[in-house]
């Protein structure tokens, strides 16, 4: 199952329904809801944390948290 942590630079994904485990409410408030898009903007020099665009909110989170957010990766056809 793909998660936000699996995104590569510039790649986007759509957040899947997460009924199984509960994500921190703070993440939801920032727009981490099923159906919303996530884009990986930057990765910090040591590969962690990652900087994402969560349906318009630009935030940085650690990989450990990113691994909890499941998504469907949209395959980019054109180069970014």
């Amino acid at each position: 199952m793909a998660t936000v942590a699996d995104l590569i630079h510039g790649q986007k994904g759509i957040i899947k329904d997460f009924s199984e485990h509960l994500l921190p409410i703070k993440l939801l408030e920032l727009g981490c809801l099923p159906g919303n898009s996530v884009e990986l903007v930057q990765v910090a020099p040591l590969n962690d944390p990652i900087y994402i665009n969560l349906s318009g909110s630009h935030i940085a989170i650690r990989r450990s948290l990113a691994e909890l957010i499941e998504l469907d990766i949209i395959e980019e056809t054109q180069a970014p």
């Binding site: 921190p24 703070k26 993440l27 920032l30 903007v41 944390p49 900087y51 909110s57 630009h58 935030i59 940085a60 989170i61 650690r62 450990s64 948290l65």
Partner: peptide, 11 residues
């Protein structure tokens, strides 16, 4: 304690 690191990257 649960690690909940989150930083907004403002414009």
């Amino acid at each position: 304690s649960r690690s909940l690191f989150m930083v907004e990257m403002p414009t």
